[in-house]
């Protein structure tokens, strides 16, 4: 025999009303966050592809490869960054930062890498931010990449520059590698001073260690080619070591 009285019959309706409101708020927030995470993931994947494209550089194909990379990057900006820009405004920049930071960092990495290959200089945060302005609805507060994400992106950039430098030495472009070496050293030195005052800098500390390893790898590569080259200056009777002897360019007609 059962004498059940369902406990739910007398629902607290004021409570339910409040929670209906909260539910609506959370649903909207979660949907937005979900859209941003997706857009950010797209930005990441496609920025990585841009970076891979840059690494396809060889001695002979530089303009061509870079043109493709820049084109790809422009597509990332237009197709994927624009989605982020459209979703984000005002307090979202900080509230939802975790949802888009990885995408933005990777984008900074790709954009600065392309720019360095083209101009040999560091693309500034203000320049990147300026390039994002046209993407946003003029009535809204436009997305501006924050200093932290920019710095985190730059930190990863140095790893890609290391890969680039090793590749350039292989192609006999030693001067190019030396330029990268000095560029990366500058970044490392500047960041040394910034890291301790950055907020949530545990990630950044790890990145600094990797960065130092990258610097040392580039230095060792430059050292190795220098020592090897120095040996043959007397041998060849010239002061300009013929680094063009390095690499694939030489042995294929």
């Amino acid at each position: 025999g059962s004498s059940k009285k369902p406990r739910t019959l007398m629902v607290d309706s004021a409570m339910q009303d409040g929670f209906a409101k909260y539910a609506e708020y959370l649903n909207e927030l979660n949907d937005k966050r979900e859209r941003i995470v997706k857009a950010s993931r797209d930005v990441t994947i496609n920025s990585k592809k841009v970076i891979f494209q840059v690494h396809r550089i060889s001695r002979g194909n530089k303009e061509e490869v870079l043109a493709t990379a820049e084109n790809d990057l422009a597509n990332v900006t237009k197709q994927y960054m624009s989605k982020l820009v459209k979703e984000l405004q005002g307090t979202d920049f900080w509230k939802l930062r975790r949802a888009y930071t990885f995408g933005v960092q990777e984008y900074v990495e790709a954009a600065t890498l392309c720019n360095f290959c083209k101009t040999g200089t560091l693309l500034n945060l203000s320049e990147i931010n300026a390039s994002l302005l046209p993407l946003s609805d003029p009535s809204m507060e436009p997305l501006q990449i924050n200093v932290l994400d920019y710095i985190l992106g730059i930190a990863d950039l140095t790893g890609e520059l290391m890969r680039l430098a090793i590749g350039r030495i292989s192609d006999g472009e030693v001067e190019y590698a030396k330029k990268i070496c000095s560029f990366v050293r500058d970044i490392y030195r500047e960041l040394t001073l910034l890291v301790p005052i950055m907020e949530d800098n545990a990630d950044m500390k790890k990145k600094m260690e990797t960065m130092l390893q990258s610097v040392v790898k580039i230095e060792n590569a430059c050292y190795s080619v220098h020592v090897r080259g120095s040996e043959y200056i007397p041998l060849l009777g010239t002061n300009d070591p013929d680094f063009s002897l390095f690499g694939a360019a030489d042995f294929e007609p």
Partner: peptide, 9 residues
């Protein structure tokens, strides 16, 4: 070691 490498370079 790093110092020496860079000095030689």
């Amino acid at each position: 070691p790093r110092y020496v490498v860079n000095q030689v370079t």
